[in-house]
Design a protein around this nucleic acid. Structure first.
Lengths: 157, 157
DNA sequence: TTAAATGCAAAGCTTTTGCAATACT
DNA sequence: AGTATTGCAAAAGCTTTGCATTTAA
């Protein structure tokens, strides 16, 4: 079942696919948009708006932070991008190309691990049966300490 | 085992207990502090700093927001108060009188349910075994839709 | 040509910080 | 009296908004 108003699940394997989608929707393909989209495709992990503007520094042109935010919002409306929040700190944006994702974050090293929703179904079911809440980790992921950071910290207090 | 540096688990059933603790630590008992502490005791649910300043409006005196934040931080250092974050929105503060608490929040109605840590042990264990993360819900609670809000929304899309 | 999108600047919201004035001890 | 604490104001961090200018179509 597809929710009305939501963009259909779709695959965007390259920046041009996204830009074509925008053109198809009557949106313009500006230099700023090319850069934002390119940066998202180049990113290996979710990035903040600030990081996107910074990433453009190397490429020559600089995209204003406000424009980055506006474009991220536009891309999110198109279903191309999703964002979420880890602890304090800015929102993190990533391509939604592979469909819905959820996350779990390490508050110590900042690592963000992307998960398939099914991987969290057991957790979700546990929470639902115990507390009656239907929880999701796509927008507000769980925060904790990852295995590596726990190992580094040692086991003795 | 008690972590070094952490305040010992203690019970504060009345505002005076807290004020006495502060005096004992060489801290002064100001009008602002009386008000902040009183407001926390009077609150039925976790409150924001903003709500604490607003709550003082009825009592006559008004405590500056900055002072509220500073006092909340002081009280947190003393182990009297804890704060956590629900989605967007300001931090929420509550007495830690009954020991450690964790939370789960409804993103629709804003309800915050306090939980004993043991109630979340199964969830924690599930996450640990699957992902290697040791997660906590005391500072960044899970966010979802509570049972009542789901009922209200109906079951058909 | 013309309306969408940009850059810049300002503002909003939460929280923190500097500093002179106040008030607890 | 002496200093911790306050109030006010300004600033910091993230995000949004207003507006004149640029620019894609």
């Amino acid at each position: 079942v597809t929710a009305a108003g939501a963009a259909p699940a779709q695959r965007f394997s390259r920046p041009e696919h996204v830009l074509n989608l925008m053109r198809g929707r009557g949106l313009r393909v500006s230099a700023a948009r090319r850069i934002v989209v390119a940066t998202l495709f180049a990113a290996e992990a979710p990035v903040s708006a600030e990081q996107i503007t910074a990433a453009t520094a190397g490429g020559g042109a600089e995209v204003d932070l406000a424009s980055v935010y506006r474009n991220l919002e536009t891309l999110e409306r198109l279903g191309v991008v999703r964002h979420f929040h880890v602890g304090h700190g800015p929102g993190l944006y990533a391509l939604a190309a592979d469909g819905r994702r959820e996350y779990i974050a390490c508050e110590r090293c900042g690592a963000v691990r992307a998960l398939q929703p099914e991987e969290l179904d057991a957790v979700r079911a546990e929470v639902r049966s115990r507390f009656g809440f239907e929880v999701g980790f796509g927008h507000f992921p769980m925060v904790g300490v990852c295995g590596e950071c726990r190992d580094e910290a040692g086991e003795a207090g």
